[in-house]
Amino acid sequence: VGDQVLEIVPSNEEQIKNLLQLEAQEHLQLDFWKSPTTPGETAHVRVPFVNVQAVKVFLESQGIAYSIMIED
Rank of each mutant, 00 (worst) to 15 (best):
V1G: 13
V1S: 13
V1T: 12
G2Q: 11
G2M: 10
D3G: 14
D3I: 11
D3S: 14
D3R: 06
Q4V: 15
Q4Y: 15
Q4S: 07
V5H: 08
V5Q: 05
V5F: 11
V5P: 01
V5C: 15
L6H: 00
L6Y: 06
L6P: 00
L6W: 12
E7C: 15
E7V: 14
E7Y: 13
E7Q: 13
I8N: 00
I8E: 00
V9H: 10
V9I: 12
V9T: 11
P10A: 06
P10I: 06
P10L: 07
P10D: 01
P10S: 02
S11K: 12
N12R: 02
N12Y: 02
N12K: 02
N12G: 03
N12M: 02
N12S: 10
E14V: 06
E14N: 07
E14W: 10
E14L: 10
E14A: 10
Q15D: 08
Q15R: 01
Q15E: 05
Q15F: 01
Q15M: 04
Q15N: 02
I16D: 00
I16N: 01
I16Q: 02
I16Y: 04
K17Q: 13
K17D: 06
K17E: 08
K17N: 09
N18S: 14
N18F: 15
N18Y: 15
N18L: 15
N18V: 15
L19Y: 01
L19P: 01
L19V: 05
L19G: 00
L19I: 07
L20W: 12
L20D: 03
L20Y: 09
L20A: 07
L20P: 01
Q21S: 12
Q21W: 15
Q21D: 12
Q21H: 13
Q21P: 01
L22C: 04
L22I: 05
L22D: 01
L22M: 06
L22A: 03
L22E: 02
E23V: 15
E23I: 14
E23Q: 14
E23R: 15
E23T: 12
A24S: 09
A24P: 02
A24T: 09
Q25S: 10
Q25P: 02
Q25E: 08
Q25D: 12
E26A: 12
E26N: 12
H27Q: 09
H27A: 09
H27L: 07
H27F: 09
L28P: 04
L28F: 10
L28S: 03
L28M: 09
L28G: 04
Q29Y: 08
Q29V: 06
Q29S: 09
Q29N: 12
Q29A: 10
Q29C: 11
L30C: 05
L30W: 04
L30Q: 01
L30M: 05
D31T: 15
D31E: 15
D31I: 15
D31C: 15
D31P: 03
D31Q: 15
F32M: 04
F32W: 15
F32N: 02
F32K: 02
F32V: 04
W33D: 07
W33H: 07
W33F: 14
W33R: 08
K34M: 05
K34C: 08
K34E: 07
K34R: 07
K34H: 08
K34A: 06
S35F: 14
S35V: 12
P36A: 11
P36V: 09
P36R: 01
P36H: 02
P36T: 05
T37A: 07
T38W: 07
T38Q: 10
T38K: 11
T38Y: 10
T38P: 02
P39L: 06
P39Q: 04
P39S: 04
P39K: 04
P39H: 03
P39T: 04
G40K: 04
G40D: 04
G40P: 02
G40A: 03
G40R: 03
E41T: 07
T42A: 12
T42M: 07
T42F: 06
T42S: 13
A43P: 00
A43T: 13
A43N: 04
H44Y: 15
H44D: 01
H44W: 15
V45R: 00
V45T: 01
R46A: 06
V47D: 00
V47P: 00
V47A: 02
V47K: 00
P48D: 04
P48C: 04
P48V: 03
P48N: 05
V50M: 12
V50Q: 13
V50S: 11
N51H: 14
N51I: 06
N51F: 14
N51A: 11
V52E: 03
Q53H: 13
Q53K: 10
Q53R: 08
A54D: 06
A54Q: 09
V55I: 07
V55N: 00
V55R: 00
V55T: 03
V55F: 15
V55K: 00
V55C: 02
K56A: 06
K56Y: 08
K56S: 04
K56R: 11
V57Q: 13
V57S: 13
V57K: 11
V57D: 14
V57L: 14
V57N: 13
V57H: 12
F58R: 02
F58D: 01
F58E: 02
L59Q: 00
L59M: 03
L59R: 00
L59A: 00
E60N: 07
E60I: 07
E60K: 06
S61H: 09
S61F: 06
S61N: 11
S61L: 11
S61G: 08
Q62V: 11
Q62W: 14
Q62N: 14
Q62E: 06
Q62S: 10
Q62A: 13
Q62C: 14
G63V: 02
G63M: 05
G63S: 06
G63P: 01
G63L: 05
I64A: 01
I64F: 04
A65H: 13
A65E: 09
A65I: 10
Y66M: 01
Y66T: 01
S67D: 04
I68M: 06
I68H: 04
M69A: 06
M69E: 04
M69Q: 06
M69N: 04
M69D: 03
M69T: 05
I70K: 10
I70R: 07
I70M: 11
I70P: 12
I70E: 10
E71F: 10
E71V: 08
E71D: 12
D72C: 15
D72V: 14
D72F: 15
D72H: 13
